[in-house]
Amino acid sequence: MPETDERGGGGPRLLWRTAQVREAIDETPRVRSLVLDVPGWTPHRPGQHVDVRLTAEDGYQAQRSYSIASPPEARHLVITVERIDDGEVSPYLASEARAGDRFEIRGPIGGYFVWTEALGGPLFLIAGGSGIAPLMAMLRHRAARASKVPALLLNSARSVEDIIYREELERLASRDDGLEVVHTLTRRRPAGWTGGTRRIDRDMLAELGIPATERPRVYICGPTPLVEEAAKSLVALGHDASLIKTERFGPTGATHGS
């Protein structure tokens, strides 16, 4: 049985609550964070997600899941949404929604893809695209707790402009508290780029990753091909499969769905 950070199966029903947008932050040309006021919100743990439900004027509703990007310590809940052009919910959240707009939210959901400071480290985070959102909640939580747990974020993006939370990650990595951030750019790289230059693969994980001998807790979130490749490679490199937790999404599916 994989190790679980359990919360019992019982408990009261998760209610739909009204969320109001406080602020919309453009992270990249395709990705936006929404800072939300959610009265009555139950504190979450880093890595958990929420269900979002939109309601049109005629009562039509659509619902999807999104990872929480803010740490439990933050005053406001933040979700980070990538616009899927032929999607139904993400174009609204990532382009249309503005301060004052309202929709419903339900959660927090999921007790497996979770890291809290108490679990310790080392912490090895692997992200692709908007899959960085739940991992950012973990890094923000780590910083809020002034944790010195050794941590590495290996983040795959298409170009520098596509790196989500770029400036904040620079700030976090410059605190000299044991966090290292490595970006790998798969399409376009600026002159003099010193980070990774291709998709995440076994060689890159062997060269840059935290070694299996240190038994890091690994969290991988991104598109399915990235998650499959990274998880498979880490197992081949000797990492304990029970320490590797994954969250995947396809073009229309799942946690960062359309």
Partner: peptide
């Protein structure tokens, strides 16, 4: 909602 894809969801390595 309907999808034409077949998204993959698993908690750990395949």
């Amino acid at each position: 909602h309907l999808t034409e894809d077949f998204p993959v969801l698993s908690a750990g390595p395949t």
